[in-house]
Amino acid sequence: MQIFVKTLTGKTITLEVEPSDTIENVKAKIQDKEGIPPDQQRLIFAGKQLEDGRTLSDYNIQKDSTLHLVLR
């Protein structure tokens, strides 16, 4: 499925993911596309910070959802 990741600069990254993918996995995909190390990434969805060990389906993230990427 496709999800979107919006950065603070207003750029939107499109990712191909599975509901069973972990947040860690998603961060690795963002690193592949953007070169941002996962340890600098914070992903936010519906006002919640997403934890590495959980999956997209744990957070009820569905296709065409938009996550927000904050760098630390």
Rank of each mutant, 00 (worst) to 15 (best):
M1W: 03
M1D: 05
M1T: 14
Q2I: 15
Q2Y: 05
Q2P: 13
Q2N: 09
Q2G: 10
I3V: 09
I3M: 12
I3Y: 01
I3S: 00
F4D: 10
F4G: 08
V5M: 04
V5I: 09
V5G: 01
V5D: 00
V5Y: 06
K6R: 08
K6W: 11
K6F: 08
T7S: 11
T7G: 14
T7M: 10
T7W: 15
L8I: 08
L8S: 14
L8F: 04
T9I: 07
T9D: 06
T9V: 05
G10P: 12
G10I: 14
K11I: 06
K11E: 12
K11T: 10
K11Q: 13
T12M: 06
I13R: 03
I13S: 05
I13P: 00
I13M: 15
I13V: 09
T14Q: 04
T14N: 14
T14I: 14
L15F: 13
L15E: 01
L15A: 12
L15D: 00
E16G: 09
E16H: 12
E16Y: 05
V17Y: 10
V17K: 00
V17P: 02
V17Q: 11
V17F: 05
V17R: 01
V17L: 09
V17S: 08
E18A: 15
E18W: 11
E18S: 08
E18G: 09
P19E: 09
P19G: 14
P19Q: 07
P19K: 04
P19M: 06
S20W: 13
S20D: 10
S20V: 13
S20G: 11
D21N: 07
D21K: 02
T22L: 13
T22M: 15
T22G: 08
T22S: 12
T22I: 06
I23D: 01
E24N: 01
E24K: 06
E24M: 08
E24L: 03
N25G: 03
N25K: 14
N25Q: 15
V26T: 09
V26P: 00
V26I: 12
K27A: 13
K27Q: 14
K27D: 00
A28T: 11
A28H: 05
A28M: 08
A28V: 07
A28R: 12
K29L: 11
K29P: 00
K29I: 04
K29V: 07
I30A: 05
I30E: 00
I30G: 01
I30M: 03
I30L: 11
Q31I: 11
Q31E: 03
Q31L: 07
Q31P: 07
Q31H: 08
Q31V: 07
Q31F: 14
D32Y: 05
D32I: 08
D32T: 07
D32F: 15
K33W: 14
K33S: 14
K33Q: 12
K33Y: 07
K33E: 01
E34F: 04
E34D: 04
E34R: 01
G35I: 10
G35M: 07
G35K: 05
I36P: 15
I36H: 06
I36Y: 06
I36S: 12
P37T: 06
P37R: 10
P38R: 15
D39V: 06
D39P: 10
D39I: 04
D39Q: 06
D39A: 10
D39H: 04
D39E: 08
D39M: 11
D39S: 07
Q40I: 03
Q40L: 15
Q40S: 12
Q40D: 14
Q40E: 12
Q41I: 10
Q41D: 02
Q41V: 12
R42L: 07
R42E: 14
L43E: 00
L43G: 00
L43S: 00
I44D: 12
I44Y: 06
I44L: 15
I44G: 02
F45M: 07
F45K: 05
F45W: 05
A46Y: 04
A46F: 08
A46W: 03
A46H: 02
A46L: 11
G47P: 01
G47N: 07
G47K: 04
G47W: 03
G47D: 13
K48D: 14
K48Q: 09
K48H: 12
K48W: 13
Q49N: 12
Q49E: 09
L50Y: 01
L50P: 01
L50N: 00
L50H: 00
E51Q: 02
E51P: 03
E51R: 02
E51Y: 03
D52W: 04
D52M: 01
G53K: 14
G53V: 08
G53E: 10
G53R: 02
G53L: 10
G53I: 04
R54W: 10
R54G: 10
R54S: 11
T55H: 07
T55D: 07
T55A: 09
T55P: 08
T55M: 12
L56D: 00
L56R: 00
L56I: 04
S57H: 14
S57V: 13
S57R: 10
S57W: 05
D58G: 10
Y59F: 05
Y59T: 03
Y59V: 05
Y59R: 01
Y59L: 07
Y59M: 14
Y59W: 04
N60M: 07
N60G: 06
N60W: 04
I61Q: 01
I61T: 04
I61E: 00
I61W: 01
I61M: 07
I61N: 00
Q62R: 08
K63R: 06
K63F: 08
K63V: 15
K63L: 12
K63Q: 09
D64N: 06
D64A: 14
S65M: 13
S65K: 05
T66S: 12
L67N: 01
L67D: 01
H68F: 03
H68S: 12
H68N: 15
L69G: 01
V70Q: 15
V70A: 07
V70F: 07
L71S: 12
L71P: 03
L71N: 14
L71F: 03
L71D: 14
R72M: 07
